[in-house]
Amino acid sequence: MLIRLDTTISEPLYAQIAREVRRAIMRGDVREGERLPAARELAHSLGVNMHTVLRAYADLRDAGEIELHRGRGAVVLARETLHDDVEAAVRNLLSVARRQGVELEQLHRALDEGAAE
């Protein structure tokens, strides 16, 4: 599993970590039931504060992507699959956004707003 952070971009480090873990899960680098590195270990490895990693792990847990256990650490959960139509719509949305130069963050906001309506 590769975790890569860029310290110069505005996206907070915890969000970058969560994004990288999510990507690793998507690519199958870590599979369902496998353990993520311990927060302390990952923090030391990346040279970031342990609370930054814990925050990323908490976000992933809240999104239902991992499970956090005392003593057993972070375990990857089965990925909920979306309906094919939804998957296709997401791909379509992403390609349109990319063409229009819309940032991912703006897209997230737009989706949140849309869901709130």
């Binding site: 599993m1 590769l2 975790i3 890569r4 952070l5 860029d6 310290t7 110069t8 590195p37 990952l42 490895s45 990346l46 040279g47 970031v48």
Partner: peptide, 12 residues
């Protein structure tokens, strides 16, 4: 390719 501002960890 790893830039000077990048932090990279690989777990295998």
């Amino acid at each position: 390719t790893i830039g000077p501002s990048d932090r990279v960890s690989w777990f295998g």
